[in-house]
Design a protein around this nucleic acid. Structure first.
Lengths: 344, 344
DNA sequence: GTGAAAGCGCTAACAC
DNA sequence: GTGTTAGCGCTTTCAC
């Protein structure tokens, strides 16, 4: 049997409360006691039981990430993997580890009628000290309600609207898209196609607004036929690319609002015999792994998901001691690779 | 405050033990009692506390996946993401969800001297009901020792050697590599380059053996200059591709033993002006998302990581009631895409 | 500065 | 079939 707090107390010749004090770095502990306890802990190789701590105390040393089940499963099933989740997990896990916390990824059926039941079940059976909310569900009022009713601190990741609820970490999608568009204009492009994402995502709207904003800032007009709606998938990028590249006045550059779609555009160009970047420049948004290894490698916006998740996790951990509503904006980076160049 | 088992018992007019019985589907419960308790549970929206159950009982409803910290962090940092982990998680999460379990992904420093301490700390503080072990650490004797000493059921994923310890889920890497090589030979290739993985991975060895086996089965000799060692990274694939394609007697096909390296070979070919598959056929191993979206899309072996993880998780859940040493072999698939064709 | 006692919300062992 | 009683291993409260 593993050692318990009683074993440690007995060996050190002190009360279990003293052991607890040392373990939790509580004030008012003499150096002598501290040393005795530490020795006993070491020699017994004692580790406190998480469940006992959770049951007795007020924290569970658990951070939960709620991700959309449908979306994630669909990503996974199609073999695309979920780069977003992967990076989120990276950032969160690293911070959790530093603080001795654990990360639990939970799939939630945001669409289901049982959503409320399942969420509150999760909150009450797990008692996480904080919750990470991912888009597009970081804006769901039902979810926010449950979390607030439960008193669980949460961070809304990638949420660009401040609803005055919970904490928030986001990046300026609109400005990033405007920057990318301006970059293309700077290269000399005048007819720039745009492949938008699904309207349900706030980020889709923001990116499109950024594109239009940059155009008008450079006295170019937004031509409706240059904008094609996709749904963030490779296939929709292919379709959009084909449509744009076979139109009568073909654009010299195409800005797809995520990398998967940009790769689709690349593929469409190749099969139409249009070279990249010679015949058409292509750029994306996100900086997924595939963007790095595509032919040609993709110019894109690096969305710092891991950094966002790390910052969010830190907020949650701090919120445990000092509840405060924090909002943080994270910087993006324009990554210039070989898929863009001045029009030929 | 959330409802407890006492609230339910009081409302139903029964003892807490009866509530517990109904909750845990224990035998010897009358239909009437069952109904009363169920009603009370529903009307109070009661959910048992995980930590209380864990503390009092013998199971924690937790499955832990131990993954190599260095490896995973390095993957993540470089922006490549970790497709392996992502798929593992998919398979495991789905099964956990079905069974009302939770999945905890823990980064473990397998190299560190503190490995033993950290592992046993994890086991004792979390008390997982089962552990998923990933390669290359599923073969680490230290890890197996700790797990066995602790009495925690574990599954060694992708471990091709049966050490008579724990459970095991794997695929036949050697045969898969042999099949792929035979496929190239069938297309008419006679000089086939091979990019191997790092020797530390058992899978590397197996894939290389499969390659050699297929060659000799078709009366072709293994030429040492056709084999270049890589380390499973894109960059090492680039180097290997360059070396093979600039050699005096250039191979007409290159089989890289994972997709990242195959993409590197593709890139090297493009920058040397060698077309794919016209000038050289290229194939990989794993079927990562990038393989699907590369130019040209990559012929590869689909390693069913998610299915393996799902099977492993099911084994762990069953092991809880009935400890048995199970071994399971999972089938792979050859995925033929555009990067291979008969030699031109 | 330290300790004793009382739970936290369950399951397990044993009555009835 | 059902209930009673002890814990599980900690933190919390309150004494000293």
């Amino acid at each position: 049997m593993p050692a318990t707090i009683y074993d440690v107390a007995a060996l050190a010749g002190v009360s279990i409360k003293s052991v607890s004090r040392v373990l939790n770095r509580e004030p008012n502990v003499s150096a002598a006691l501290q040393a005795k306890v530490q020795d006993a802990v070491n020699s017994l190789d004692y580790r406190p039981s998480l469940s006992a701590r959770t049951l007795a105390g007020s924290s569970s040393y658990l951070i939960a990430a709620f991700v959309d089940a449908d979306l994630t499963l669909e990503h996974w099933r199609s073999g695309r993997g979920s780069d977003y989740l992967s990076r989120l997990q990276f950032g969160a896990l690293v911070e959790c580890r530093k603080a001795g916390y654990h990360l639990l990824v939970e799939l939630v059926d945001y669409g289901a009628s049982s959503l409320e039941a399942r969420l509150s079940a999760l909150l009450r059976s797990l008692r996480p000290d904080g919750v990470l909310l991912t888009p597009p569900n970081a804006d769901d009022p039902t979810v926010l309600d449950i979390l607030e009713r439960n008193g669980t601190p949460f961070v809304r990741l990638g949420a660009d609207r401040d609803l005055g609820r919970g904490m928030r970490v986001f990046m300026d999608d609109r400005k990033a898209a405007a920057d990318m568009t301006a970059h293309l204009i700077g290269l000399g492009h005048r007819r720039i196609g745009f492949v938008s994402g699904p309207a349900a995502y706030p980020a889709s709207q923001a990116r499109r607004l950024g594109y239009e904003e940059a155009l008008s800032a450079h006295d170019l007009i937004t031509e409706p036929e240059l904008i094609v709606e996709g749904d963030f998938t490779f296939a929709s990028g292919q379709r959009a690319g084909k449509a744009l590249l076979t139109s009568t006045r073909r654009p010299s550059a195409i800005f797809a609002s995520n990398d998967d779609m940009a790769l689709g555009v690349l593929n469409a160009a190749a099969s139409l015999g249009v070279s990249t970047p010679g015949g058409v420049s292509v750029c994306g948004f996100d900086d997924t792994p595939s963007a790095m290894f595509s032919t040609p490698p993709l110019t894109t916006v690096r969305q710092p998901v891991a950094e966002m998740a790390a910052a969010a996790t830190r907020m949650l951990l701090e919120a445990a001691r000092d509840p405060a509503r924090t909002v943080k904006k994270i910087d993006y980076t324009l990554v210039e690779r070989a898929s863009t160049q001045p029009p030929g």
